[in-house]
Amino acid sequence: MADARLPEKGLSPYRQIRNVVLGSITGLAFLVAVTPLLAIIYIAYDRGKAALSLSFVTTMPSGFPVGIEGGILNGIAGSLILIVLASLLSVPVGVWAGLYLWDQSHTRLAGITRLFSDLLLGVPSVIWGVVGFYVFSTNTGWGFHWGFSGLAAGLTLGFIMIPIVTRVTEQALRDVPRSYIEGALALGATRFQVMRDLAIPAAITGIGTGILLGVLNVLGQTAPLVFTNYYNTGIPHSLVGSNGSVGDLAMQIFIYIHEPSKALHVKAMAAALVLTVIVLLLDMGIRLLSWGSRKYARKA
């Protein structure tokens, strides 16, 4: 190999160009990724702005077909009712299960429970709809026979929230420094006392964040409502039975956009903007909360 020698020092033009091209491609891809997402918000605003006003969120829908005039108060109120119902079920159960997974972390039963909790995170929302239908709504066979109603839908959404709250609660508790827990145990505190006095107070922001994250996840859920609640143009007096359906923002968008009416499409886009803004604000709130608690934890 008489000819063997090192390549010349310095970058060949090929390598220089490749470096620039491969770098630029990533920026370009990022733009391609983000542009449609931002376009969604812009188009919702652009196509919906004709309907946007304060009264849009404070009045009930009216006209024929219903919704062509008036606002989306029924949807906002209904979504709120559903979230409250979902939280009433999922917060106690999810936090409870999260406490269990943390406390008895390495037992075999906890391992199995954690596995199934994670599996529940992957259940598609139509399946939740079917399950909610048979457990709460159907009027034949076993189940609660609540019909298409707010209670049925709220608790179905609660089912979806449970594994989210469970996971985030466990994670928040695990983030409590071990030294902190050991300090109390070494004083002769019981596990219950450690949990009540130290672990939960230290993890409370994390748990709160988890609950909000769960709410965020079910806020835009539409499919389960098709199976358990459908839609109501008014605000119901009861949450159970044949007149128990509630309005819902996501369902409202679905119904409006499904109609071949330009006027309803405008309302749908305006409602989509409202829903998106609520979701993004909630998301921002969660970020501020967890950012604040992290800052606090660093000081500790």
Binding site: A33, V34, L37, L38, A39, I40, I41, I43, A44, R47, L216, L219, G220, Q221, T222, A250, I253, F254, I257, H265, A268, M269, A272, L275, T276, V279, L280, D283, M284
Partner: peptide, 18 residues
Amino acid sequence: MEMLAGIPSIVFGAFGII
């Protein structure tokens, strides 16, 4: 990017139609 991941899918659907 993370926040945009949270836009509800019904909004994507409406965007698709429009």
